[in-house]
Design a protein around this nucleic acid. Structure first.
Length: 649
RNA sequence: GCCUGAGUGGCUCAGAGGUAGAGCAAUUCACUCGUAAUGAAUCGGUCGCGGGUUCGAUUCCCGCCUCAGGCUCCA
């Protein structure tokens, strides 16, 4: 008697009774069994040790598949934990999952791990891999599991088990004499993890709560062979070269001065120019789409922020001038962390009819947020930054259309910037277990979230749900962009707010003559300009598309006698609307080209006797190289076309 | 705010308990040059800041600031 299962390609496979997915892999080929990381049985990812039943469909996943990687890295983290326990028996283990790029384990230990320790741990991991320990799976009752954790003084494991349901059966994996509480799935043995590297050690609060003890987290990466590890490390090295924080400084976009303060970059002419281009572009596009621009104060009395809820829910993030306690009737002022309450006053300054809605108010909004000192990072997290903010006041009937309008604008921006392939969407909802963080009652939250979810589902986009990621006044759609290191940051956000209109007593008169509170959409179309600049620098490795490049054309006179001709040409091209400079240094043309290439200037025009005599340009493009000669009108047409189409090279 | 690591001329980096070097950049001069580095000379740092130890500190110790990567938080 045996069973028959169906493989991914539809072909049947005969097997004995009571065999596992791994046995099936062995039956197919030993080579496959050597490389398989995970099984997918009837469409569900499961451990390879899972027993198969007659009629099951089976897919075997290797490291190349995402889920296979996860299992691989999860086992890698166990290998690291085992090595740590061998070297430092007093270490207590917390959690050690696989992540998007590798794995980590959180460890509680007296001593601080140094790079030397990491090397030691790597050596011991090498041994564990060589020993090729089999991973055994077994389960225990909750009580037995608790006893196990207590016996070996694994306090964090005790806590983890205690949080599991009373009648839960708890699974374990054992390799050699190392046992870890774990839901799996895992590889079959430790021998598969042929190449790994421990990347860094950092602190991490137990359970992510800053009130808890800080543990030491070791991050690592691993691969089935050494070549892949090498490639990965080279790739990381390449990414570091594109890092906006390095490139942006090298290319003279921005700098920081330590006595000015953290998170307060200074934009030099090139950086400021690109920011200006982006701001104008956004403002123009918003005007086309029916927005009205406002300009509101950067500071306000605390009174405003008390009404908006910022004083109670966002004060830690605000720069406050004067005594926040406001003793003796003094009034504190604060730098604005958001523009919403200011724009609401513009809405309120007139009586609004339902016929006036939707009202779309945009503002190029400079904001100030007092981020904790460890938060700042390049141009990604700042204490002063500027966003393309807008608030759209709508009737309930207009909510969907206006939300989709904002979404369309966001997509338009992402396409223009060439970032549309790097996005992911997050539906950020509140955390019902942490109500203090939010204003409004649960029903209103539910309504706002339901409304947003319905709209999101109607667009067909794929999104993940971020619990506890909402703003304090409402749910958000966060449009996130991956940077060179694969890390995601929110660039654009569209939020639905059913709360603040009431707080601020914003009304419109509906068709029955009744006063109603509008719904409000908070949205950005490019989000934070500084962050956008950072992402552009990384995306294009500093070679910004022509339309956003701070310097578009550099003219390279061959000898001193050509400088005047170059300057004349620069004036003409500047008049035609381009950003042009002349390299009038006493250098050879090869040198000038090299420097212009390193500056990533899109177009170089070499100018010598021939060009001056023939009234044309010898055109060189930073990527394509020498394009030959062109007359001025052709050159202008070519460049204008690139600008108009947001060409990416 | 917490953890780990780092801070030497504009940039990249070397160095060591006895008061600092290289390359690039910059400046000047010569060359007047055709698609990724012409040559020479010169300038430039109280070694992140403040304390302490020491005869002497940039080097050792302490505190702070800034930067990087994490955690928490977030555009």
């Amino acid at each position: 008697m045996g069973i028959e299962i169906k493989l991914k390609d539809g072909s049947p496979l005969q097997l004995k009774n009571n065999v596992s997915a791994y046995d099936a892999a062995m039956a197919i080929s030993e080579n496959l069994a050597r490389n398989v990381c995970l099984a997918k049985v009837n469409g569900v990812d499961v451990d390879l040790r899972t027993k198969l039943n007659d009629g099951d469909t089976l897919e075997l996943l290797k490291f190349e598949q995402k889920a296979g990687k996860k299992a691989f890295w999860h086992t890698s983290s166990h290998i690291m934990a085992q090595a740590i326990k061998r070297l430092y028996p007093d270490a207590m283990l917390a959690i050690g999952p696989a992540i998007d790029n590798g794995f980590y384990y959180d460890i509680d230990i007296e001593q601080n791990f140094t790079n030397d320790d990491l090397e030691k741990i790597e050596k011991e991991m090498q041994n564990i891999v060589k020993e090729n320990l089999q991973l055994e799976f077994y389960t225990l009752s909750r009580d037995d599991a608790l006893q196990w954790a207590k016996d070996i003084n694994e306090d964090y494991k005790v806590e983890l088990i205690e949080d599991l349901p009373i009648d839960e059966t708890i699974s374990f994996y054992k390799q050699g004499n190392f046992v870890d509480l774990c839901a799996g799935p895992h590889l079959m043995n430790t021998g598969m993890v042929k190449a790994f590297k421990l990347l860094q050690v950092s602190g991490a609060y137990w359970r992510g709560d800053e009130k808890n003890k800080m543990l030491q987290r070791i991050y690592g990466i691993s691969f089935p062979d050494k070549k892949q590890l090498k490639e990965y490390l080279v790739q990381m090295e390449e990414a570091r070269k594109r890092d906006h924080n390095k490139l942006g400084r090298e290319l003279g976009y921005f700098t920081t001065i330590d006595f000015i303060g953290q998170g307060l970059p200074l934009f030099m002419p090139k950086g400021a120019k690109t920011l200006q281009i982006l701001e104008r572009f956004v403002e123009d596009e918003e005007q086309k789409r029916g927005y009205q621009i406002t300009k509101t104060p950067l500071i306000a009395k605390s009174d405003l922020f008390k009404i908006s809820g910022h004083w109670d829910h966002y004060r830690d993030g605000m720069f406050i001038m004067g005594d926040p306690e406001e003793k003796d009737g003094e009034t504190a002022y604060a730098l604005r962390p958001m523009t919403c309450p200011f724009q609401y006053q513009i809405y309120k300054a007139e009586t609004r009819s339902y016929r006036d809605l939707p009202i779309r108010l945009n503002e190029t909004s400079t904001l100030f947020r007092n981020e904790s000192s460890g938060e700042m990072h390049g141009l990604i997290r700042l204490r002063q930054f500027t966003i393309s903010e807008a608030h759209i006041m709508v009737t309930p009937e207009q909510l969907k259309e206006e939300f989709l309008g904002a979404f369309d604008l966001a997509n338009f921006m992402l396409e223009a910037l060439g970032l549309d392939q790097d996005v992911s969407y997050r539906f950020s909802i509140w955390d019902p277990d942490n109500k203090d963080k939010y204003i409004g009652d649960p029903q209103e939250w539910q309504n706002a979230q339901d409304a947003m979810q319905a709209i999101l589902d109607s667009t067909g986009i794929e999104y993940e749900t971020g619990i506890g990621e909402a703003a304090f006044y409402g749910p958000k759609l966060d449009i996130q962009i991956r940077n060179v290191f694969g890390k995601e940051d929110t660039l654009i956000t569209i939020q639905i707010d059913f709360q603040l209109a009431e707080r601020f007593d914003m009304v419109y008169i509906d068709s029955n003559g009744e006063k109603k509170h509008p719904h409000i959409i908070h949205r950005t179309s490019i989000g934070c300009y500084e962050r956008t600049l950072a992402l552009l620098i990384e995306k294009y490795a500093g070679a910004l598309p022509l339309w956003v490049a701070p310097e578009q054309i550099i003219i390279l006179p061959i000898a001193e006698k050509h400088v005047q001709g170059a300057k004349d040409a620069a004036s003409r091209l500047t008049a035609a609307g381009f950003r042009v400079k002349v390299d009038s240094r006493n250098e050879k043309v090869g040198r000038k080209i090299r420097d212009a290439q390193l500056e990533k200037i899109p177009y170089m025009l070499v100018m010598g006797d021939q060009e001056i005599e023939n009234k044309n340009y010898s055109v060189r493009q930073r990527k394509a190289g020498d394009l030959g000669t062109m007359i001025e009108s052709d050159l202008i047409e070519r460049l204008q076309h690139e600008v108009d189409t947001f060409a990416k090279d």
